[in-house]
């Protein structure tokens, strides 16, 4: 066990050395991200699990952002916003290709909502926006994607080829959803 830990620790050091070889610009990028990470940007949408099938969405929308949004797209009703939950399992979400979407009308003064009934082993993303005069959904904020727990503990086997490939080639594209803070620091 200890041997394995040392082996893996060494592997970690190898990654660190690689990271050290990254140019200054990437370091600056990291600092930039870190610098802004904990600051209030005035517009955020978070989606976190309260249980395996219950999602909690919280948003903060600065009046200036809402004003800018209504400048870019004319709202049908400026008092009502749309909270949408898209099922984006195994796709690169482009706004029009979700497997399903759930729409919830919220007041522009609301700040959070809970959504029950998420399916197991699915990926979701939330968006807050509004309907435009031509009845199109205009997104303002998008949450980090989330993935619900496996249906069964054996489901991990389906991901095994992807996982082993990533383990061998850590630089390749991550084929699953990670904690947003892990993405920020990458």
């Amino acid at each position: 066990m200890i041997k394995d830990i040392v082996h893996l620790q060494n592997r970690n050091i190898f990654w660190k050395q690689n990271a050290d070889q990254m140019n200054q610009s990437i370091n600056i990028a990291k600092l930039n991200v870190r610098k802004s990470a904990m600051k209030k940007s005035g517009h955020d949408l978070y989606a976190v699990f309260l249980s395996d099938d219950l999602l909690y969405c919280r948003w903060s929308l600065a009046p200036s952002t809402l004003k800018a949004a209504f400048h870019c797209g004319k709202p049908l009703n400026s008092e009502i916003l749309d909270l949408r939950i898209f099922d984006i399992t195994d796709i690169y979400f482009n706004g029009v290709n979700a497997h399903s979407v759930t729409c919830i009308k919220v007041s522009k003064d609301d700040q959070f909502w809970t959504i029950k009934g998420l399916k197991r082993n699915r990926s979701y993303i939330c968006e807050l926006g509004f309907l435009t005069e031509d009845y199109r959904f205009f997104p303002i904020l998008q949450s980090h994607p989330i993935h619900t727990p496996f249906q069964s503990t054996e489901d991990y086997v389906q991901r095994l080829p992807d996982v082993e490939q990533y383990y061998q080639l850590p630089a390749c594209f991550l084929p699953w959803i990670e904690h947003p803070d892990a993405v920020v620091d990458s």
Partner: peptide, 25 residues
């Protein structure tokens, strides 16, 4: 050795218990 990917898991999840309550948040 086996590499494993595990999505969300928390204590007593499989018993249907919540991770956090709305009140706590």
């Amino acid at each position: 050795e086996r590499i494993i990917h595990i999505p969300l898991i928390y204590n007593r999840m499989n018993e249907g218990k919540p991770l956090l309550t709305v009140e706590e948040l």
